[in-house]
């Protein structure tokens, strides 16, 4: 069954149309990359799916249920995990505690003021940290973790809620090149293993073409192409607007000098 189905999504800010009739769908175990130039409406699309923005028109269906305009907290409860472009973790807690808090929240165990939290969901948290490769960092405070490790921690926290859909907004921004591919391969493995649907935006074309099953290309708020990576790579319109032919210096596909 389709996990996420977005249809005719529309949003404008102060009269400017940011997203104009965008539709796409993500199946279980599938990774869909949303790409396009800066200002194309990727983040706006993303925030409408994640509940941070309410769509002006169109529908966002999660396993058949309309979640357009539902609060992020409810959307989480319905099985959507997310990571942020700028990592958001709990700096005053260890990596393990971060995941524990997420797991306890998922099991509705937060409102117990008298129970000690030290051992709640500890095995689950440790297993998740192990899965994302952070077992060695479990007892370090999130505030002192390296940026790449924070991205992994966010992933573990998102997975703690056993989501059906994972939203990742520029998951590899600010990471070193080697780390990027490693992180997204990890996500690829988890998506396949758990049947998790993944929707992500990304500027790094190596990552996009390396891990995604399908790619949707946005430009000026509208979907100009979507399909398998090879079809997208060959699409003349996409090359003209976004990927380029490798000679123009102005329009850069990525935030990291990879267009040469």
């Amino acid at each position: 069954m389709t996990v996420l189905a977005v249809e005719g999504l529309r949003k404008s800010f102060g009269g400017v149309l940011a997203v104009d009739g965008v539709s796409f769908a993500v199946e279980p175990g599938e990774m869909l990359a949303l790409i396009g130039p800066n200002g194309a409406g990727k983040t706006t699309c993303f925030n409408m799916v994640g509940g941070q923005l309410r769509p002006d028109a169109g529908s966002v269906r999660l396993a058949g249920r309309d979640i357009g305009g539902v609060s992020p907290r409810r959307i989480c409860r319905l099985g959507v995990g997310r990571t942020f472009q700028v990592t958001a973790t709990f700096a005053s807690m260890t990596a393990r505690e971060n995941v524990q808090v997420a797991a306890v929240a998922h099991r509705r165990g937060t409102w117990r003021p008298w129970r000690s939290a030290a051992d709640l969901e500890r095995p689950a948290a440790e297993a998740l940290l192990d899965q994302v490769g952070l077992a060695a960092q479990a007892e370090r405070a999130a505030g002192v973790l390296a940026y790449g490790d924070l991205k992994r921690l966010e992933l573990a926290m998102a997975l703690a809620a056993e989501p059906r859909l994972l939203l990742m907004d520029e998951p590899t921004a600010g990471m070193a090149a080697g780390e990027r591919v490693a992180l997204m391969r990890l996500v690829r493995g988890i998506a396949t293993g758990r049947g998790l649907a993944v929707l992500f935006t990304e500027h790094d074309m190596d990552v996009v073409f390396g891990v995604s099953d399908r790619i949707a290309v946005l430009a000026r708020g509208a979907l100009i192409a979507s399909g398998a990576p090879e079809a997208i790579r060959a699409d003349p319109q996409v090359r003209a607007i976004y990927l380029g032919d490798g000679r123009t210096g102005g329009e850069r596909p990525a935030s990291g000098g990879r267009d040469c």
Partner: peptide
Amino acid sequence: AEQNLHFAAEVATQAVILES
């Protein structure tokens, strides 16, 4: 400081590459 090598090549005479 630039990431756009084409732009850099057009304007710069000298380059310093930083890594980690």
